[in-house]
């Protein structure tokens, strides 16, 4: 756990993705959607076999209603060709 203190870039990027998801719901902009596409595509490209084809994502928000946990899809992005997403 202490190692996270000086170096935690992946987790901080995850938190930025959470912020982008919240922005997409509260105040949608192309920037938020582009950033999420770019960061998912970059993550896929880092995989052992790279990635090709199409990419889409959806945002599922989790909330508690009384004693039950509900999940709701609040955003679905139109698919984009991975080749067209800049990952550098």
């Amino acid at each position: 756990m202490a190692a996270r203190l000086p170096w935690n870039p992946l987790w901080n990027e995850s938190l930025f993705l959470v912020s982008l998801a919240e922005r997409l719901i509260d105040d949608p902009t192309a920037h938020s959607e582009d950033e999420i596409f770019k960061r998912i595509a970059a993550d896929l490209a880092r995989g052992p076999e790279g990635a090709e084809g199409w990419l889409a994502f959806r945002l599922v928000f989790v909330a508690r209603e009384d004693d039950t946990i509900s999940r709701e899809v609040l955003f679905e992005a139109a698919p984009r060709a991975l080749a067209g997403i800049g990952v550098r």
Binding site: M1, R4, L5, W7, N8, W11, N12, L15
Partner: peptide, 15 residues
């Protein structure tokens, strides 16, 4: 802040 950094990964708040 140290506990938040360890439990929730919020290292930037600590520093």
């Amino acid at each position: 802040h140290l506990a938040n950094a360890c439990l929730f990964g919020l290292n930037r708040f600590f520093w």
